[in-house]
Write a protein that binds this DNA or RNA. Structure first.
Lengths: 214, 214
DNA sequence: GTTCAAATTATACAGTTGCATAAATAGCCG
DNA sequence: CGGCTATTTATGCAACTGTATAATTTGAAC
């Protein structure tokens, strides 16, 4: 029979391989290209094994989504906090570093955008995807909110919990939009442009409400 | 045999039906749910007819993408220009109306987001989708750029062509981000919040470059 | 070394997919 | 009203899909 040889992977590694393979497939050929067979091929195993680690293909995709979003938020936090000046930076500067990390590679990246868009497109199709979205969205937004709260606190401004949440939503939106633009049209800006635009826009959004033109 | 009865559709109508059916399928069940048979069912025809109007399923999806983006840009322009105050508004106010139209229903809409995300996810998979993206992106951005140019001109500010493009990219990004947020988390803001945040952020982005905090 | 559970492969299956082709109909032109 | 062409349906097909199941192999415990 000449059966294919294999080895037992260490705890959790195979599962991770399958998730990574799924992300590769989706990024390169879209969700349509992420078939159980293609995924298995990428992961260097046979298709049946997927069902040993996941109840079905859907759950594998869910895991891939969660993983992607965790990585993104984690990367932003890590990059910001790992910056040399972070330790003795004031809250406003820390927020700027967070924005900078969000709008620079490797967070700004065409492949990540493809994955993200694929998952977003399923939010209104699959309730489980919606739940993952909500959770990961809030995780990121909470980081933003914490930073904003620090800024306000540091500068002696006061804001209700609801106001704070509103600011966080707005800042999050600005970051997302520039991130999107950077991923899609990365060649159109110098990288620094994106960051400086982001910081300027975020500061504007954080200014207290005034009478406005319209 | 009792063959199914049918009627000849007027010029272009059948093609449009197929595009609409495709959009319905994608919005409700994702790209995976947009099979030729499902699309035909929705359109009230049989599957084979798709190949009479389109070389293949891919081209149908391309047409659906182009249509979606044209509609969005068209809607924004229409809503802005149709506003009562538009006629005697100054350029800055017209830009604000454009932002407002971009960040209000029916442009801000969960279904449209699903469609948009599906298409975006294919940009790096299918070069034809990339071309459609580029074209529709520029069409929207050109509108933004024209409005900005008017503002600058009206207020006696000068800007090079390159600077103008950069401002347009930035403003576009801010609009996109808030649009995204509005579609995803529509229930979290009052609609007016989104608009006022958008206008504030856009105005900030248009302020001339200064020394910045970082 | 044997034993044995856990990990992996192999195969089979019923349903679905996009597409090709042939047959049938509709409705306009004369 | 008879014919003709554009439009539409019907059917078939080969490839592919996710999943179920059984057979095999691995590697660690003893």
């Amino acid at each position: 029979m000449a059966r294919r040889s294999f080895h037992h992977a260490p705890e959790g590694a195979r599962r991770q391989d399958l998730i990574n393979a799924t992300l590769d497939c989706i990024a390169e050929n879209g969700l349509q290209g992420a078939t159980v067979r293609q995924i298995a091929l990428r992961a260097g195993v046979t298709a049946g094994l997927i069902r040993y680690y996941f109840p079905g293909k859907d759950e594998l995709v869910h895991a891939a989504y969660g993983e992607t979003m965790n990585r993104m938020t984690g990367q932003v936090k890590f990059l910001a906090e790992q910056t040399a000046s972070y330790e003795h930076a004031n809250p406003r500067q820390r927020l700027a570093l967070f924005v900078e990390a969000s709008l620079s590679p490797p967070v700004v990246d065409a492949r990540t955008l493809s994955l993200w868009a694929t998952f977003i497109s399923l939010i209104h199709v699959d309730p489980a995807m919606a739940a993952i979205h909500k959770e990961s969205y809030l995780a990121f937004r909470n980081e933003v909110e914490r930073l904003i709260a620090s800024v306000f606190n540091d500068e002696g401004k006061s804001a209700t919990k609801a106001e704070l949440a509103k600011y966080a939503i707005a800042v999050n939106a600005v970051i997302d939009g520039l991130w999107l633009e950077g991923c899609l049209a990365g060649d159109m800006f110098a990288e620094n442009d994106l960051v400086s635009i982001g910081i300027k826009a975020v500061e504007a959004v954080l200014k207290p409400e005034e009478a406005e033109t319209a």
